[in-house]
Design a protein around this nucleic acid. Structure first.
Lengths: 202, 202
DNA sequence: TGACTTATCTATCAATCGATACATAAATAA
DNA sequence: TTATTTATGTATCGATTGATAGATAAGTCA
């Protein structure tokens, strides 16, 4: 029952591609400083097409946030959850943070969500809930693995999973902050091993 | 030789007060979203007076950054440097960060410099150098006290001062991020003692 | 085919943007 | 007093803002 053929003239652009282009524009200049002219240039779609496909500027912005939270923003956590040992997990998380905030091709430095928190929470309706959710989910997923490793005996019984999850999260915020301010990946990786030991108390 | 009487009509506003009002406006809405209309309303000065006293919008912005870096931004470090013991210093630093990012009267949540890094580095000329300097100075001042305490025998000889200085700095970034995203001071102080132990390895 | 639906582009809207010209006000200097 | 200097307020500049109207293009459906 899945109709592949839709009524009316078909789109000439890829929706996902256009969304990523819009996200990069917002990420680079910030929400307010990104004009519709910037967006049409980045997305390679004319103004009215943007409004027809994504709604107004604010709605487009919220859609880029949702997309980022589902794709790029998740990469470090996926690395964390997929690693074999808990030590590799922490190391992989931080390494992924560094590479994503400094070497991501085509994307600006730092973290899109961090930019959103800094400038549009409380100013653009709909952002605050999304940011709170992003923080909560990251803390929860990190803590979940710590708890699992505790039950497996790979971490001490009194290991404070919640605290260390938040700590790891905050290390990320520090890294994306430094990255955005111009720090190279090399410098960011300088104290990587010290941080891994900190988080795991080893 | 200090002439208190200046030529011409005297100013009817306090320069420092006006700068703080401008800073709060930029901090709340971000650089781009803050219009001259917003600024005249916040500073209670007409447009031409702003231009005469502070230059254009960008110059005014840079002056608010310099002011913040000298005043508010410094508070946690002053607390850190002034505490009696190194443990109280770390505790005082983090406590000051929380109170300044959540309870500062009249000021928006979070950290002004964090907002600047997120949105105007690379976009507004003159911001990048200031942000790099702010990070460097914080790292240096934190590490300096760790080094001093090492020489006094209050910290182990192999204590990694630089790493822990950066760690403490990044804990701050995490806190101002969460604060801006809506976290209360109470929640932020939840894992305070765990973090003090982390930084000092005790 | 012709009716219908959706997408695209050009042109353009009123509103707001950052910034300034100009006249006036309030001080000092001679 | 008059000349000079600096600050203030009104009114307004051209440019840009986010958003839309209307005509046209390209597909499906009967």
């Amino acid at each position: 029952m899945n109709d592949t053929k839709k009524l009316g003239r078909p789109r000439t652009f890829d929706e996902a591609e256009a969304l990523m282009a819009a996200m990069n524009a917002f990420w680079t200049k910030g929400y307010a400083a990104t004009s519709m002219k910037d967006l049409t240039a980045a997305m390679k779609i004319s103004g009215p097409s943007i409004y027809a496909a994504f709604g107004d500027k604010r709605e487009l912005y919220l859609k880029t946030i949702d997309r980022y939270a589902d794709v790029d923003g998740c990469a470090p956590i996926v690395a964390f959850e997929g690693a074999a040992s808990i030590e590799d997990a922490v190391r992989g998380f931080l390494t992924s943070v560094v590479s994503h905030s400094t070497q991501q091709e085509g994307a600006p430095r730092g973290c899109f969500l961090a930019s959103c928190v800094a400038t549009t929470v409380g100013e653009v309706e709909g952002v605050a809930e999304r940011m709170e959710k992003a923080i909560r989910e990251t803390d929860t997923r990190l803590a979940a693995r710590f708890d699992k490793e505790k039950s497996l005996g790979n971490l001490p019984k009194d290991f404070p999973s919640q605290d260390r999850a938040r700590l790891l999260h905050d290390m990320r915020q520090g890294h994306v902050h430094r990255s955005r301010a111009g720090w190279t990946a090399e410098r960011l990786l300088d104290d990587l091993e010290d941080r891994v030991r900190m988080v795991l108390m080893i």
